[in-house]
Design a protein around this nucleic acid. Structure first.
Length: 171
DNA sequence: CTTTGGATTGTCT
DNA sequence: GACAATCCAAAGA
């Protein structure tokens, strides 16, 4: 959980396209809302892999979502990014020039960065990824997670207070 | 083999 | 604010 909170503010990019992480959600093995709650399967295998790798899956048959694996069976969903590098590329991929809606959601983020299943299980330390610690700090708030139907009580969604780049603003 | 439902988004009212 | 779109893994028969 602490990893998810610490990750807010970090710089993340794929092939030079990326920005500052402003919203995350935590999922773990004993969490009913997590994909790995019922054990390892072909889809979520990456989630049980070595820490520092990514787990990518398709959501609602339409979108891609990306997670950072921090412990086997435990991962952090990257929900929103503040565009910083390669903004032109993002605009081209998203077909929209509104900065605030470029990466304000898991599916939007993956589309803007060009992430798909071919990157599932890849290491964050290797190409085309780039991840570096927070350059600036802000107030990080916790809230209930979004879009899930099970285990909705824990406050495992973290984000920058006041940021307009998140899917839903934090107070 | 068939059915079910989701860690969402975009569009319409 | 409400709802349809749309793919595939998991669960059931």
């Amino acid at each position: 959980m602490s990893v998810a909170r610490d990750l807010v503010g970090w710089y993340f990019s794929v092939d030079g396209v990326g920005g500052r992480i402003v919203e995350t959600e935590a999922y773990r093995a004993d969490d009913e809302a997590s994909h790995c709650f019922r054990g390892m399967t072909a889809r979520n295998a990456a989630m049980f892999g070595a820490p520092g790798h990514v787990y990518i899956y398709r959501s609602y048959g339409i979108h891609w979502c990306i997670n950072f694996v921090c412990l086997p069976g435990s991962a952090v969903l990257i929900r929103a990014l503040e565009p910083e590098s390669g903004i032109d590329t993002m605009i081209e991929r998203r077909g929209l020039s509104d900065l605030f809606h470029l990466c304000s959601g898991p599916g939007k983020l993956t589309q803007a960065l060009g992430i798909d299943l071919s990157l599932n299980g890849c290491s964050l330390a290797a190409q085309p990824f780039e991840l570096s610690p927070a350059a600036t700090t802000g107030t990080v708030a916790a809230d209930r997670r979004i879009g899930i139907t099970k285990n909705i009580d824990p406050l495992w969604r973290f984000g920058l207070v006041g940021s307009r780049f998140v899917s839903r603003r934090f107070l």
